[in-house]
């Protein structure tokens, strides 16, 4: 028999940030725990998280650039793929791990009160470590090959922050959903592969040969997929030394933070049910 909560008094629609004060220590500790577990306390663990995108970059370059020549109109294809893989890798890992995190910490949630949103947040934030190292390696190489990007590179920081918000928001929403429906996590694992191919990681939406014949399709791929504007934005400032148009900028700074606020409010509003359902 499953037990379900009967919602108590109404909670405000907007999430509360004040209740997080005094819990910075816990957030740090949870992040450290997450990193410790992920990398098993070894520096090699962090290296492994870099080896994967680098080796995939080599494979994709060999296939699409050297052999198939499909990517010949994309300059600096290895860098292009690597930026895409680093961005996507962070997004997928943080959403996937974040969405299972509440369930994985059921014991804690049933027994002690603390702001529950910290658990998925720690999962996501722990993922930034490998992304930060990745970008720390990438950016100097990048400036060496495409020197003119030096003046747009700093924009990576706000764009990545936007992506972080998007990942946080999704992790919060999905981690709650996963408590009510235990198959959400598995469903997500299935969705991520097609999602990866529909996101311009291995290709650019503007470089697709038949793209101009189906402009509406390109628009759907660009704006229907919340990750795409972030990938394109980060690529534009890292590789093309251009700043994306106001549409993409608006998207980057509205969708991610908006989803984060929504996700946070969903976690807080469902706090009572979480302790009951877990």
């Amino acid at each position: 028999m499953a037990v379900e909560a009967v919602a108590p008094r109404g909670t405000p629609l907007l999430p509360s940030f004040t209740r997080l004060s005094g819990y910075r220590e816990l957030l740090w500790t949870l992040i450290r725990r997450e990193i410790r577990v992920r990398y098993k306390g070894s520096a090699l663990g962090l290296v492994w998280s870099l080896v994967y995108p680098l080796s995939m970059m080599l494979v994709y370059t060999l296939l699409f650039s050297v052999l198939w020549k499909a990517a010949r109109n994309i300059p600096h294809y290895p860098l292009f793929v690597l930026v895409g893989l680093a961005t996507w890798g962070f997004f997928q890992a943080s959403v996937q791990l974040g969405s299972g995190s509440l369930l994985a910490n059921a014991d804690l949630i049933k027994k002690v009160w603390f702001p529950r949103e910290l658990i998925p947040a720690a999962s996501v934030l722990a993922q930034t470590t490998s992304a930060l190292v990745m970008f720390a390696i990438l950016i100097p190489i990048n400036i060496a090959f495409v020197p003119e990007t030096a003046r747009t590179v700093p924009l990576v920081i706000p764009f990545f922050a936007g992506l972080l918000c998007l990942a946080l928001g999704l992790a919060w929403l999905l981690s709650v959903a996963n408590v009510f429906y235990r198959d959400v996590e598995h469903l997500l694992a299935v969705i991520f592969l097609p999602w990866f191919f529909l996101t311009p990681i291995l290709y650019g939406l503007d470089q697709l040969p038949a793209g101009s014949a189906h402009p509406w399709l390109i628009d759907i791929l660009r704006y229907g997929n919340p990750v795409t504007p972030y990938v394109e934005g980060i690529r534009a400032v890292l590789l093309q030394a251009t700043v994306p148009g106001p549409g993409v900028l608006l998207y980057i700074f509205l969708v991610g933070p908006g989803l984060a606020v929504l996700g946070l409010s969903v976690v807080q509003r469902n706090e009572d049910s979480l302790a009951v359902e877990l």
Binding site: V3, A5, F180
Partner: peptide, 16 residues
């Protein structure tokens, strides 16, 4: 404090 007890065990999105 009120709880609702679900008599069936469905906890999967697919089944729902």
């Amino acid at each position: 404090r009120l709880f609702k007890i679900r008599l069936s065990q469905s906890r999967s999105l697919k089944e729902t």
